[in-house]
Amino acid sequence: MEAVTSQPLFDLNNRRLEYQGKTVLDNLSLTIERGERVALVGGSGAGKSTLLKALREQLPNQVAWCPQQPGLVPMLSAFHNIYMGALNRHSFLYNLGNLIKPMPAARDEVSEIARSIDLEMQLFSSVDKLSGGQQQRTSIGRALIQRRAIFIGDEPVANVDEYQAERLLKLICQQHQTVVLAMHDIDQALQFCTRIIGLKDGAIALDAPSDQLSASDLAGLYDAA
């Protein structure tokens, strides 16, 4: 267990965050401790993605990143897109060989992840032939293979069905010590996260442990300003 006095994992102090030159969040102060599972909620344009980006940039080498636009390489297989998260762990020549013909060890490692995200069947098809949900799972796979302690995801399960979403969220929470997710499904947020941060009108409108909140407490975040 960490000592109580230890530094918080993420620490934003009176920050102003911009998106495309416009201030989205102002005077923002926020700390996140190791081991927390945080859900960011709020209407679209509230600044969730901007905040996630700022958090990732604080610890770029410790964060497994799962952005809203997955940025997959469409003409390559799901296998290669997932493996992209592990390029740094291997030599360049191994990576090059694996690009030409999947290496046995890489195949085993990626297959195991594909099994856990239910993508085994499509593993060797190119991403441009996959559905939106399958692409999103590929993107999660790319984050999982990094085997990092922190997971930051921007609506990581928005395009998959409810049943699968719950399985994936469970998996993400199991495999990472700290999780920060932007979410629009309030029930999922309450179910999987320990802390809810609500954004509205360029500021934090709500920040509380999820066991003290109910779905109705969050409804106000989505009212028109």
């Binding site: 990732r56 940039e57 770029p60 964060v63 990143w65 390489v73």
Partner: peptide
């Protein structure tokens, strides 16, 4: 082409993310 914030670098970037695109 727009790359992800955590895109790879150097030769890995070239062969895995840019060349196929």
């Amino acid at each position: 082409l727009s790359l992800r914030g955590d895109a790879n670098r150097g030769l890995n970037l070239y062969f895995y993310e840019v060349l196929p695109r």
